[in-house]
Amino acid sequence: MASELESSLEASFSSSCVVPGASGCLPPARSRIFKIIVIGDSNVGKTCLTYRFCAGRFPDRTEATIGVDFRERAVEIDGERIKIQLWDTAGQERFRKSMVQHYYRNVHAVVFVYDVTNAASFHSLPAWIEECRQHLLASDIPRILVGNKCDLRSAVQVPTDLAQKFADAHSMPLFETSAKSPHDSDHVEAIFMTLAHKLKSHKPLVLSQPPEDAVALRPEARPALPCWC
């Protein structure tokens, strides 16, 4: 029984997420939930990005995601505790055709990911955007574009200005980052926090309970990135 407990703890520790400095527990009070779906081609680094944000580090090794994986993390924004749920989806086309729709339900934001070293993953974006448009009825859902694997500078196939033009054309902010590079860990953090801020100001308060102790926004969580247009 002891070993069982240990392994289940391990399992929940490794994938459910812990807020640095917040004792690892999700808030007991009912807090607002932001549901974010992460989509893009196979091997662009969706799992690594979501893992990095939720567990605070680059995973040792990741495998192909089959179906949909789920990670979450509780954060505090302007004194309000918020759960950020990231739904990490399979990249292979056949999965999204008949499997993933269920997970588009009640989504608050979408993160499109491409690999800056893989032009094909960038060229697939219009298909992903169209797919997303079909699933989400509300058109004003915040969407962001993330170019991953920036650490591989010599292998870049998608120039920033091209990606920026594309992002502008689709009214999305663009972030180029690396889930792997230790220098970019704050960056990954900032991307999701920016999104969370956007959602917080965007969405009316629905099911939250006011926090007892209002704490100021943590400095590293402040968006230090391009503004929303």
Binding site: S7, A11, S12, S16, I33, K35, F70, E72, Q85, R105
Partner: peptide, 15 residues
């Protein structure tokens, strides 16, 4: 809710 139950069940116990 969907997230909690999905999360629990997708983490298969190894023992």
């Amino acid at each position: 809710d969907m997230a909690s139950v999905h999360h629990l069940l997708s983490q298969i116990p190894q023992d």
